[in-house]
Design a protein around this nucleic acid. Structure first.
Lengths: 221, 221
DNA sequence: GACATTAGTAACAACCTGTTACTAATTGTG
DNA sequence: CACAATTAGTAACAGGTTGTTACTAATGTC
């Protein structure tokens, strides 16, 4: 059995879908599979750095490289893993929304409506989603959930998604410009009805006061 | 060789010493040891939760339970570990200062003057210390570096230690009371010269706005 | 008793945030 | 074409928060 008693690398890949976060799962057709879906994973390879394995697994599952990927901790504690791994190193990743369907045998599930999972995968997903919210103020998670250019309304929607509350437009934009995180392009996007919105790109230009690295926590009521 | 090719649990235990942070190391007298000191560590045991192993290793090395202990990630990537572990799960811990000497064969080193270490332990220490500074605004790290009661000047000194910059007394105290994190005892401590200081205890009473769990980042210029 | 030293607080100005209310540019509808 | 509906973007004000200075309080030292 692959991975038995060894270590595994398991990926929690997130994307925005509508007003919710979605997580990528892979169909598990293994003979002894007790759940239909599992996180993308692979046995750890001693000759390959953990981050590299994670990048590879994420890319294979999602069909494209994750825009951001970072370790989310080690999980063991005798809870069942789909491949029987003794210990699993979880990675948390993020990728922009795509309209085309995911690769065969994979599916995006809303974060608040997950399928039945092996106990360890359930624990990993919960921990990873909690970390996503905690880490968004020190890593450009919100920007990596969007494509190269985006409207400020798009960006605000992502922040609202991650924070779980509504923000006020004026103060959101004010603190955004104060943080020197985005710069305008000269393109505009018309979303059907209403005034077209200017497109921006992520372009951090300044260490907010220089105190302990860049920050991404944007206020806004 | 113990731990060979398996997983290990490695502890980075910190304590305040003067105006600096110190990290605990254990003398490594192993036959094949290439460095004199190493982090407290133990092979991982599949039958024991990771957190429990970590608690045990930290307690044995320091002579008392860590006041706070939390996982800091998994490290592998072919860098040499003192016990030859394929993968190491690092834990970051914190304990109040003690005047009595540490257990035999252990020693506190200033964080900015570490001994020569096995490559993986060097990487783990650097990552753990960075995390200590990042996590202090979501975990009561500063309070766990102090004993059950402390003066506000003590607390301010710990925050300054962690942040690496001086804070202003008035605004530090103002934001501290606004956060409802401490409550006064009716004891006072005289530190030699100067007015005696009131002792406080850590007593979080309120979720700062209720937004995403308690916070511990105190401002103060 | 004067002085040095540390603890603790009051008060003010400058800045920042939350909010409201406005203007601007587009699509859809009669 | 006029006008409502809708979304984008900005101005401006009130109230709160922060950084800073300056003060008072309590102790040990000379």
């Amino acid at each position: 059995m692959r991975g038995a008693s060894g270590n595994s690398i398991d990926i929690v890949l997130c994307t925005p879908r509508g007003r919710k976060l979605a997580v990528l799962f892979v169909r598990d057709d293994g003979k002894h599979a007790r759940e239909k879906w599992c996180l993308p994973w692979s046995p750890a390879n001693e000759d390959e750095p953990l981050d590299l394995t994670a990048t590879r697994v994420a890319q294979r599952a999602a069909g494209s490289r994750a825009a951001w990927l970072s370790q989310a901790g080690a999980f063991a504690d005798a809870k069942r893993h789909p491949g029987g791994a003794a210990l699993s190193v979880a990675y948390l990743g993020v990728t922009p929304h795509r309209d085309d369907p995911p690769p065969p045998r994979t599916k995006w599930f809303d974060a608040d409506d997950l399928p039945s999972l092996a106990p360890r995968h359930r624990i990993i997903v919960d921990a990873a989603l909690a970390q996503l919210r905690e880490r968004m103020d020190r890593a450009p998670v919100a920007f990596r959930l969007l494509g190269a250019t985006f409207t400020l309304s798009d960006l605000q929607a992502v922040y609202e998604l991650l924070l779980g509350r509504r923000l006020h437009k004026a103060s959101f934009r004010r603190s955004l410009t104060a943080a020197f995180l985005v710069e305008p392009t000269d393109e505009w996007r018309s979303e059907g009805r209403g005034r077209p919105a200017q497109l921006f790109r992520y372009a951090p230009r300044k260490r907010r006061g220089g105190r302990g690295g860049p920050r991404f926590d944007v206020l806004g009521a």
